[in-house]
Simulated assay, not measured.
Amino acid sequence: MMRFWPLLGVSLLIFGACVPNKKLVYLQKDDLKRRKEIPKDTVLRSHTLNIREYRIQPLDILSITFETLSKEGDESDFLQKLSTRTSSGGSGGGGGSGGATNGIVVNTEGEIDYAVLGKIKVSGLTLFEAKDSIEKVASQYVPDVVARVRMMNFRFTILGEVNGENTVVSGNTRLTMMEAIGLSGGLSELADRSHVKVLRQKGSEVEVFYVDLLKEEYVESPYYYVQQNDVIIVPPLKQRPFRKYFVGNLGVITTVISFGLFIITLSR
């Protein structure tokens, strides 16, 4: 009878360390309960996304290039000097190896500053709105000018129970939480996907909120999209200590228990 209790305790600890599928599958509804009933090649339901276009902030770094249909040499040289992208010869193969790319920093007042064009307010604008504002100013000097504006330092940091803690820089400013997790290498099996913490900078303040990645309705949340400088912290499940420390040392624990039972048996 004495041998039964240690074995029962070990069994309870092992099964207590198991992680069910309902704690691992992203954006689930009731699909896990009725897998065999789900029709294939059929739209089950749809969600309306709460899309929020990224708005430029002070200290953002922008890549701004200009183009025009005009063939005048002076105008072309003028625009080339304004562009943040300059070619240094050679032919790059998609990685930009044939040229150097420099950005222009948005100052603390939310402006970009050109020697000829002057200061242009871009903070609070989307990239497309900033493009229109820059084109309006540049068209006073060069007709038919087209500006192309892109973010160069859109980044987020992901920490905790992930397959690789990292600060990720992306060229895509409309980045969902799922895409951000994918770019960082994904979450570990012991990550608590139902209580993911996000720190979001808003001016001189930091907002703190939690999101539940297990619920399908999360795609409709205003927090579905990652913002500049977001810090995503993924906590562990309560099974983590068992899986990491107990199961990893199960052989040692079993040996100790067996040795203890052996000593008890001999002492009778």
Results as ranks from 00 to 15, higher is better:
251 G>I: 10
6 P>M: 14
205 E>M: 13
220 E>L: 02
184 S>L: 03
112 I>W: 01
118 G>A: 09
220 E>G: 09
82 L>C: 02
19 V>F: 03
197 K>E: 13
9 G>L: 15
114 Y>P: 02
54 Y>T: 04
25 V>D: 00
165 E>R: 13
236 P>S: 04
213 L>Y: 03
264 I>H: 10
90 G>H: 04
250 L>E: 09
84 T>S: 09
86 T>E: 00
201 Q>L: 13
241 P>K: 00
260 G>Q: 13
212 D>T: 12
240 R>W: 11
213 L>C: 08
232 I>W: 05
266 L>N: 06
108 T>Q: 08
250 L>S: 07
257 I>L: 14
22 K>T: 13
211 V>A: 02
193 R>G: 06
18 C>H: 03
119 K>A: 08
187 L>G: 01
242 F>C: 02
58 P>D: 00
257 I>M: 07
136 K>C: 06
47 H>T: 02
20 P>C: 09
190 L>W: 07
229 N>C: 01
9 G>A: 14
222 P>I: 03
97 S>E: 15
104 I>F: 05
133 S>M: 07
51 I>L: 11
231 V>A: 05
237 L>C: 11
58 P>S: 00
191 A>G: 08
56 I>A: 00
204 S>Q: 14
67 E>S: 12
61 I>R: 13
105 V>W: 04
88 S>K: 14
127 L>Y: 04
219 V>F: 10
114 Y>C: 04
49 L>Y: 13
121 K>F: 01
63 S>A: 07
216 E>F: 03
22 K>G: 03
70 S>V: 14
41 D>E: 14
50 N>D: 04
14 I>G: 05
36 K>W: 03
248 G>D: 15
190 L>R: 06
247 V>T: 11
192 D>N: 14
216 E>R: 01
214 L>K: 03
251 G>D: 15
29 K>F: 06
90 G>C: 11
159 L>Q: 12
261 L>D: 03
213 L>I: 07
135 E>D: 10
184 S>E: 04
58 P>T: 01
155 R>D: 06
265 T>F: 15
179 E>Q: 13
92 G>H: 04
13 L>W: 01
233 I>T: 09
96 G>V: 05
14 I>C: 06
266 L>V: 05
125 L>Y: 10
2 M>A: 09
66 F>V: 04
254 T>K: 08
255 T>M: 10
